[in-house]
Design a protein around this nucleic acid. Structure first.
Length: 393
DNA sequence: GGTTCCAGCGCG
DNA sequence: AAAGCGCGCTGGAACC
């Protein structure tokens, strides 16, 4: 399915590319100075040899195929221990990723007729029911770093138009609350509470108003981890605490939200028996290796089976919203341009911005309230507008 | 010239 | 023994 297409500012991207190139050159110089020789930083083999053999600053961590591991988490550990070299590699990777994957490549996707970038949305490419985006993938445009957000700023609206971004607030946690019938979570969403702060207050046994940033950050990691079926070991790595502490967090989490543990156990049990799981709307995800004799294969399938109804229900809600919005937007000066899983991007004429914004929020938040699928949690939608996708208000 | 795999990393 | 779900794109490496 190819849809409208979005305008990008290729001059701005060109400026970004040369800015990135300068950074890359500068970092390279420092890297070569430390390593005492020039090599291809992008070559995992050469980099690994320098890191492990020449500089001797890495413990022996290997990849699947037996090469030296140089992933970000390995390098971050080393950087944390005070080594300058790994941090330089991390910086180099970040900037060259932005340049190669985004600022250099996006302008090549501009359609000469429409002067816009048209992604392809794949409707049946995922196991959960999500869409996928390719050629180019516009579902992974950077936002987390400052330089990354600059890339996002190159996505712009036509003259006299603005971009609208509308996203579902915490949709997967809301679905988990509904799916597993989690009393405390449902209560919190009905009161529109900050869910990560609430989780923090529950597992750290403090008043919700006294939760600090670090506690909230850890609670957030746990909430996401739960959705993905994390282990105590994985959680410990993620939030940088001991295994013992991570185990304590998970225990008190399941004590406060016992229905979640029940949901997980039941989902796996059902999947072992049937080979599939259903989401709220009846879409099936198949996991035929759920009973595999190999521990890794089996555990991987179990985590995926826990996650699929949650991710899949969210995907389904978004699909329904898109269908409703598509109908509502016929004969309007507003086009639906992008879907990024829980977010929709529209381009609208300033004349109808207010009215359309109201309509989008109404349609998206009421989509799972119909007779066929009564959803026990309110869905809230955050909507922002702006001249570009990087700066929205 | 091309294909396929891997490691790595961008996003939700 | 491994350790967090779902994707697509990139450059390197191995091979035809």
């Amino acid at each position: 399915m190819e849809i409208e297409g979005i305008k990008i500012d290729s001059k701005f991207l060109k400026i970004l590319s040369s800015k990135f190139e300068k950074k890359i050159q500068k970092i390279q110089k420092e890297v070569f100075k430390i390593s005492n020789k020039e090599f291809n930083i992008a070559s995992p083999k050469q980099l690994g040899e320098i890191l492990y053999n020449d500089l001797k600053i890495a413990d022996l961590k290997k990849t699947k195929k037996g090469g030296f591991a140089t992933s970000a988490s390995v390098l971050e550990d080393l950087a944390f221990k005070g080594h300058k070299f790994p941090q330089l590699i991390l910086d180099w990777r970040q900037v060259s990723k932005l340049k190669n994957t985004y600022s250099d490549s996006l302008p090549e996707h501009i359609n000469p007729k429409t002067k816009r970038v048209h992604t392809s949305f794949l409707l049946a490419a995922t196991t959960t029911g999500r869409l996928a985006s390719s050629d180019p993938n516009l579902q992974n445009i950077p936002i987390k770093s400052e330089d990354g957000r600059d890339i996002r700023k190159s996505f712009i609206a036509e003259k006299d138009h603005v971009l609208i971004s509308a996203d579902y607030n915490q949709i997967e946690m809301r679905i988990l609350a509904d799916l597993a019938d989690v009393k405390e979570l449902k209560k919190a969403f009905k009161k529109n509470e900050d869910i990560h702060s609430l989780t923090a207050s529950q597992i750290f046994n403090t008043d919700i108003k006294k939760v600090n940033d670090d506690q909230r950050r850890k609670a957030k990691a746990i909430n996401f981890g739960i959705i993905y079926g994390i282990s105590q070991y994985g959680l410990a790595k993620q939030i940088n605490v001991s295994n013992y502490e991570a185990e304590k967090f998970l225990n008190s989490y399941f004590a406060k939200f016992p229905e979640i543990k029940v949901y997980m156990d039941q989902t796996i049990k059902f999947c072992r028996k049937s080979g599939y799981v259903n989401n709220i709307f009846g879409r099936r995800s198949h996991f035929i290796n759920i009973n595999d004799k190999n521990y890794n294969v089996r555990n991987f399938q179990e985590r995926a089976a826990i996650n699929a109804p949650i991710q899949g229900s969210a995907a389904e809600i978004m699909r329904l919203a898109m269908i409703r919005l598509d109908k509502k937007l016929t004969n309007q000066k507003t086009k639906m341009l992008l879907q990024i899983h829980d977010e929709l991007i529209f381009e609208t004429h300033k004349d109808e911005e207010k009215r359309i914004s109201k309509m989008i929020i109404e349609e998206m938040s009421s989509v799972a309230k119909s007779d066929q699928h009564s959803f026990s949690i309110p869905l809230t939608v955050d909507l922002n507008t702006g001249e570009n996708w990087g700066t929205l208000h």
